[in-house]
């Protein structure tokens, strides 16, 4: 059992959070979300299909980094910036059976690798990048940006907390790609959701003393967090 700290009243915490977000945006404190093409003629950029369903995009459409792998069946977006800005190009799949694009949304339907090919207007391959898909075998839950090990979470009544879930492969790789999520709270008189329950991150408020569970589901995967709420003081 662990007590989550610090605990601040909801309004105060919201104001501090907004200030931190503004400072963070001003400082542009993002890792480079691009990856250089294998022929070194430009850079590929990963962005999220849905900012609330992809753990790699918790601050907007652009990812904090280019994922090592994406979850099988998840969707994402890609862009390419050639070193020579005059080149007209299209990103095409090198594996029509396993990597598909619909309306700019990419999906890898099977486990394994596939080449993303940059084709110029003459139909020549200009650059390329391999992308890998792995099946999601586990959900990792973060509470206030800390990975939660799964024991009982202790919250103080009146405080707000950020919960997030990210899919992981069997080898521990954090997977990119937008998946569907659903959060449920066993007893909503003890904990209440402050944001939509159908996204990978959610804001929960501890309301009153008691014990309950918070569960997140994505496909066949689920993660249950036992929660004990205590009165302040």
């Amino acid at each position: 059992m662990a007590l989550l700290s610090p605990t601040k009243p909801a309004a105060h915490r919201r104001a501090v959070g907004a200030l931190i977000a503004l400072v963070g945006l001003a400082a542009c404190d993002f890792a480079d979300p691009g990856r250089t093409g294998e022929l070194d003629r430009g850079r590929f950029y990963y962005s999220c299909e849905n900012t609330h369903d992809d753990g790699f995009c918790d601050r907007g459409d652009l990812s904090r980094e280019f994922p090592t792998a994406v979850a099988v069946g998840s969707s994402f977006r890609l862009d390419y910036e050639p070193n020579d800005g005059t080149v007209h190009f299209d990103i095409i799949s090198g594996c029509l059976d396993c990597l598909q694009r619909t309306d700019g949304r990419w999906t890898m339907t099977t486990e394994g690798r596939a080449p993303l090919l940059v084709e110029n207007s003459s139909g020549e391959i200009y650059d390329l990048l391999h992308i890998e898909a792995k099946p999601a075998t586990d959900l990792v839950v973060r509470v206030d940006d800390e990975t939660w090990p799964g024991d009982t979470l202790v919250l103080i009544a009146g405080t707000l907390h950020d919960f997030g879930a990210t899919p992981e492969a069997a080898d521990g790789t954090e997977l990119g790609g937008s998946l569907e999520y659903e959060w449920t709270i066993a007893d909503t008189s003890i904990i209440e959701a402050w944001s939509s329950e159908n996204r990978n991150d959610i804001e929960l408020q501890a309301l009153a003393a008691g014990e309950t569970t918070v569960t997140v589901r994505s496909g066949d995967l689920s993660f249950e967090i036992p929660v004990e709420v205590r009165e302040a003081g």
């Binding site: 294998e38 022929l39 396993c98 690798r113 080449p115 090919l117 390329l128 890998e132």
Partner: peptide, 25 residues
């Protein structure tokens, strides 16, 4: 071979080996 493929490849005039899902320039 002009790019570094994720899996080791082979390219000679006698034999070419490449992994499924990979591209070799």
């Amino acid at each position: 071979v002009l790019n570094e493929t994720p899996t080791q490849n082979l390219c000679t005039d006698q034999r070419i080996e490449i992994a499924r899902g990979e591209a070799m320039v």
